[in-house]
Amino acid sequence: MWDLLIINPMVNTLLGIYAVLSRVFGPENMFGLAIIFFTILIRLITYPLTIQQMKGAQGMQEMQKSKKWQEIQKKYKDNREKLAQEQMALYKEMGISPFSSCLPTLIQFPIIIGLYQAIIRCLAVTPVQLLDLSKHIYPFIDGAALIPLNNQFLWMNLSQPERLYIFGIGIPVLAIIVVITTYMQSKLMTPPAQPGEQGAQISQAMNLYMPFLMGWLAYSFSSGLSLYFVTSNVVGILQYAAMGKVNWRNLIPSLPKRTR
């Protein structure tokens, strides 16, 4: 089922994009570009979730500022259970889902796992992988003409973890970029929050751990996956920036406050 619904469509979309790009520009560097295009496509498909996340975050912000919430906090400051109940009721009243702000991040995981498997399956560097790939190519894709895929992208072999060798020292450039862009994305997309607020605590923890997790994945696994991370982060930031929702003060606190 996982193969049928997630992996096969991903594999064939990647191959399809690669086929078109190779036909136009030649195969060199094209699998890397196919991953970039594919990521943009995934971001566009998951755009409604992004909007939902934004609305959720905005709603949270409004709730934090509302008089009603502040009164509830005062009233039930010694009764955490009741406070939580009232908070949930207020969420409901204001049409806010408390989980909507982390949903896009969570939904990325099956996509990441699927994409990773799809990239590895497409690159098919061993006989078992190639035999497996041969069984998952849709009939309308001319797999025979495409295989073997050109797995070089700039200085990277997309089937291997990336290292840029400078004076004999392997530097994981892409993993570093993944850490930076993941951190930037998390910070830029997090709305300012009241200290001690539950959602803010979760967001802070996510902002801290996520870049390191992504960086570790990028360091350990094939660079094709890192390319996905970087593209996804950059596209995410651009999407938010285009909507005017990027919060630069989270990244650079010395920036002047935006006036409305």
């Binding site: 796992i113 994945l217 696994f221």
Partner: peptide, 11 residues
């Protein structure tokens, strides 16, 4: 995150 990492590593 640990579970997610292990899951991905398993892939």
């Amino acid at each position: 995150f640990t579970i997610a990492s292990i899951t991905l590593a398993g892939c």
